[in-house]
Amino acid sequence: MVNGCDANRTPQGRPTIDIPRPHVGNVPYGRRAVYSCTVPKTLALTFDDGPYRYTSDLLNLLDSYDAKATFFVTGINSGKGQIDDFNLPWGKLIQRMHWTGHQIGSHSWSHQDLSKVTPSVRRDQLLKNEAALRNIMGGIPTYMRPPYSSCSMESGCQDDVGKLGYHIIYFDMDTNDYNNDSPDLIQRSKDAFDQAMARRDRPDKPFLTISHDVHEQTVYNLTAYILERAHEDGYRAVTVGECLGDPRDNWYRWDHSEVSFNSGNESINVTQSAPGSRMSA
């Protein structure tokens, strides 16, 4: 997942470290990682590692079900190029996610294991991804999922991530889609979802799922199955923020000085003074 040359690239623009990072709301930061939702009858769909060539079709699918999701995006992994390079499709896809009510979270710059790198590399992985997202949408996320779901207390990762003002988000339902990305195997992921729903200890139990929009079968097979099954049981497909009862204004931090981001056609300068800025859907 990691290319050494990719990891060394840096987004344009000034660093994001001076953006204020107060801890607001009731969702825990840093050491107190989040594994499950709190709002009954919600299903938080999350997709890691993208955006990728299937992501546009996934957004179309979600729109057709009036479903929302959280995308934990990487900045430059898998040889896809930088997400804030508008000669590529990724920046416009992320803007579409944001404008249509999905949630954007960080999955690091180049998908390194944050428990196995030095504190300076760990910080670099998060700040570079912030800068790229700032270049796209004018702000940075407060939610993150560590690559490989690895951010240990022993390595100092949890404390470092908390100091940067992030909620660490894991999951309580793993579709295991990355091991089942073929027409012959994807039924295993469907079965895993059905089994989790069958084992719930109460009928309104919420779920926080993990899937990956870089896998073909996830986008063109598994996700529609999950949405249909959830709808039959009266669940709403929502963002992680919504499934935690966290107001949308808490999902991002906006730059209070003039910043430049790319609209997909041209660069636009705006002053970010509040969460309700022009880039906030």
Score class of each variant (00 low, 15 high):
H215K: 09
H215W: 03
H215G: 02
E216F: 00
E216Q: 09
E216I: 00
E216N: 04
T218W: 10
T218V: 02
T218K: 08
V219G: 06
N221P: 04
N221V: 05
N221K: 12
L222S: 06
L222F: 03
L222D: 01
T223I: 11
T223K: 09
A224T: 13
A224K: 15
Y225R: 11
I226W: 09
I226E: 15
I226D: 10
I226F: 06
I226L: 15
L227T: 14
L227Y: 14
L227A: 14
L227P: 13
L227C: 08
E228P: 03
R229S: 07
R229V: 00
R229G: 00
A230M: 00
A230R: 02
E232Y: 12
E232Q: 15
E232A: 10
D233Y: 01
G234I: 00
G234H: 02
Y235L: 00
A237L: 12
A237G: 06
A237S: 14
V238T: 13
T239D: 09
T239A: 04
T239S: 10
V240R: 12
V240S: 10
G241H: 14
G241R: 13
G241I: 05
G241W: 15
E242K: 11
E242W: 03
E242P: 14
C243M: 08
L244K: 11
L244C: 09
G245L: 03
G245T: 09
G245A: 07
G245Q: 06
G245D: 11
D246E: 14
D246R: 08
D246W: 01
D246S: 11
P247F: 01
R248K: 13
R248L: 10
D249S: 09
D249N: 09
D249Y: 06
N250I: 04
N250P: 06
W251F: 13
W251L: 14
W251S: 12
W251Y: 13
W251H: 14
Y252Q: 08
Y252V: 07
R253A: 10
R253F: 01
R253W: 03
R253L: 10
W254K: 04
W254R: 03
W254G: 04
D255R: 12
D255N: 15
H256T: 13
H256G: 03
S257L: 07
S257W: 15
S257N: 08
E258T: 08
E258P: 04
E258Y: 08
V259Y: 04
V259L: 06
V259G: 14
F261D: 04
F261L: 15
F261G: 01
